[in-house]
């Protein structure tokens, strides 16, 4: 009882602070300097239509590299923690209900479409909303559908780790190319900027976003698989 009261008081104090912040908030009338810089220089410098994609891939590209590294570490740690606590095994997939005919047929039909949509989302990341992270999540949802349709299915660990580490290596290589051929690490102008608004434009942004998408998709798939895994072999 005392604990609930103390918690309530703490949350109320925090609420007062937040309330002051929200009530005194006046929206800016114009963009701040950083945002104006990005808005005006994104088309001539990067050739991308989507300013958010330009910021993520080019202006703050090093942060994105760090982010996918953090995701890789997360996937590795999840697999490690779950492998260490493996319990008694009762045979693969015991105690799991088989999925229905409907789900299996639907999976067979939908998986290629979902994969295609994921690839569409990250290849068009520099033109439309979307990009590597969203596309990677869509790829992982195809993997999720496969896991749901067949609970004892295992993805090929070799394929996942090749896709994951291969796209990571190429990502860093493109960054190093930028260091020598263009203005700096992860500069997208190692490829021609092309026509503004066409699919082969914006230099290396579509390439980098595709690599991010593959990497994120493989990482999410492996997180999902290690958490779903009924028994560790």
């Amino acid at each position: 009882m005392v604990r609930a009261f103390v918690t309530l008081v703490f949350v109320a104090i925090l609420g007062l602070a937040f309330g002051r912040l929200a009530l005194d908030y006046v929206p800016d009338a114009a963009l701040n300097q950083t945002a104006v810089h990005y808005a005006e220089l994104t088309p001539p410098e990067t050739g991308a239509q989507n300013v958010v994609a330009a910021i993520i891939v080019t202006y703050r590209g090093l942060d994105t590299l760090g982010e996918v590294t953090v995701l890789f570490l997360t996937a590795a740690i999840v697999a490690l923690v779950l492998a260490q606590t493996s319990g008694p095994t009762k045979g693969r997939g015991s105690g799991l209900l088989p999925s229905g005919e409907l789900l299996q047929t639907g999976t067979r039909m939908l998986t290629p479409l979902i994969l295609l949509f994921g690839i569409y989302v990250f290849v068009n990341g520099h033109l439309t909303p979307g990009g590597g992270f969203q596309g990677g999540a869509i790829l992982a949802s195809a993997a999720l559908l496969l896991l749901l349709a067949d609970p004892v299915r295992r993805f090929s660990h070799r394929l996942l780790s090749w896709v994951e580490s291969g796209s990571g290596v190429f990502y860093v290589l493109i960054g190093v190319f930028g260091l020598f051929l263009a203005g700096g690490f992860l500069d997208n102008r190692i490829l021609p900027l092309g026509d503004f608004g066409s699919i082969f434009s914006a230099g290396a942004i579509p390439l980098i976003y595709a690599l991010i998408g593959l990497k994120v998709g493989a990482e999410f798939s492996s997180i999902l698989e290690s958490l779903e895994e009924a028994e560790d072999h």
Partner: peptide, 9 residues
Amino acid sequence: DVAMTEAAI
């Protein structure tokens, strides 16, 4: 962009 990410992830 954020809406797509939030809905998918």
